[in-house]
């Protein structure tokens, strides 16, 4: 069982070798929170502004289950 993770903009720099096309597939046997997944990847929690689970906005406390797709976004303010 696994989950699929995508990272946006500067968060990609926190995971060496991150491939934006493939994303990251991570083994997950037990439910975990989005925070636990982020820490497992080494993402700086203070830089995470948005969490999307299966295309819907969620919080860092939300539970991630096997086969979920999760995306992390930092704040973006350019115009």
């Amino acid at each position: 069982m696994s989950i699929h993770i995508k990272l946006s903009t500067t968060l990609r720099q926190s995971v060496p070798g991150y491939n934006p096309v493939a994303g990251i597939t991570l083994p997950l046997e037990e439910p975990a929170t989005a925070t636990q997944v982020a820490l497992r990847l080494g993402l700086p929690l203070q830089d995470i502004k948005l969490v999307m689970i299966n295309g819907r906005q969620a919080s860092l406390d939300a539970t991630i289950r096997p086969n979920d797709q999760i995306a992390f976004f930092p704040p973006v303010g350019g115009g």
Binding site: S8, T9, T10, Q13, K49, L50, Q57, P74, P75, V76, G77, G78
Partner: peptide
């Protein structure tokens, strides 16, 4: 997306 917060950053990933 961006709830009111006293600690909200002025800028984001575009700065990098």
């Amino acid at each position: 997306l961006y709830p009111p917060s006293k600690t909200a950053p002025a800028h984001g990933a575009e700065a990098t």
